[in-house]
């Protein structure tokens, strides 16, 4: 790790239980402003749970989430949004009966962006939604719904953006395009955490990855190093493949 700025988000020994199952079992990591961090790991390793806890959907059962110097574990989602955390959903959940424009208006009006909120037309244009702006969100295809979910998040001007499988289901041209957009967001100083199964996409955009297994991190570093790490190979491919 090269010398880096103070992290905007620091997660320490985070625990989340569902009944007897420990979805997060002492997870610790951090991310700095302007950095794109990948969270990877097999299904059920706790990636989405981590995002749900950080974005306030679940209260943690142990450990700490520190955002911008303040402990925010268990704070309600809308308050975290006002503090500057936002996210997209694996399955996008736009407000189906409202138009695309109205969907974004809600976030612009209630997001309490700390700096001036972005302009509607610019958001629509940046994420290729201008043509469907006045159609109900229910009419959009799944890629457009994902983009709407992302613009809804961006309308609140987050300083930490959590992307839960944004790339799944996009075609190669769309992948390249959205990778560029995410990098441009990070270049403005936004911290971005990307949960993704598409390793090529992770490779293309992340500065650093955390590999999760059974609710805790087993590796931290670049993806190129991760794929040579025996423990990482073991959880992804099974014991016999590890050197």
């Amino acid at each position: 790790m090269s010398p880096e700025p103070a992290p905007i988000l620091k997660v320490s020994t985070l625990v989340k239980r569902f009944g007897g199952f420990h979805a997060l079992d002492g997870l610790s990591f951090h991310v700095a402003s302007g950095e794109i961090l990948g969270l990877v790991g097999p299904n059920g390793s706790g990636k989405t749970t981590a995002i749900n806890v950080i974005s306030g959907l679940y209260a943690p059962d142990g450990g700490e989430v520190v955002f911008d110097g303040a402990s925010v574990g268990g704070v309600a989602s809308h308050k975290l949004v006002h503090r500057g955390i936002n996210r997209t959903f694996q399955v996008p959940k736009p407000f189906l009966s409202l138009t695309v424009r109205e969907n974004i208006q809600v976030a612009l009006a209630y997001g309490r962006a700390s700096v001036a909120p972005p302009a509607m037309e610019e958001l629509l244009d940046d994420f290729r939604l201008t043509e469907v702006a006045d159609r109900p969100a229910a009419d959009l295809n799944s890629a457009q719904q994902k983009m709407l979910d992302l613009t809804r998040a961006l309308a609140t001007r987050p300083r930490l953006l959590l992307l839960d499988e944004l790339a799944a289901g996009l075609n190669p041209a769309e992948l390249d395009w959205i990778a560029g957009r995410i990098k441009a967001l990070a270049a403005t100083g936004m911290a971005v955490i990307v949960v993704e199964h598409l390793m090529g996409f992770i490779e293309q955009i992340t500065d650093r990855v955390i590999v999760l297994n059974a609710g805790k991190e087993i590796f931290e570093g670049t993806l190129a190093t991760a794929v040579r790490e025996p423990q990482v190979i073991e959880v992804f491919l099974g014991g016999e493949h590890a050197a």
């Binding site: 989602s77 949004v81 736009p94 009966s97 976030a107 009006a109 209630y110 998040a153």
Partner: peptide, 24 residues
């Protein structure tokens, strides 16, 4: 009003509405 729009957002999806900054 934005208030009425936010109410409809809550009706459509409470989780997304909270992620738009709405106190559901």
């Amino acid at each position: 009003s934005a208030f009425g729009l936010a109410l409809q957002a809550v009706r459509e999806d409470a989780v997304s509405a909270s992620m738009a900054g709405v106190d559901v």
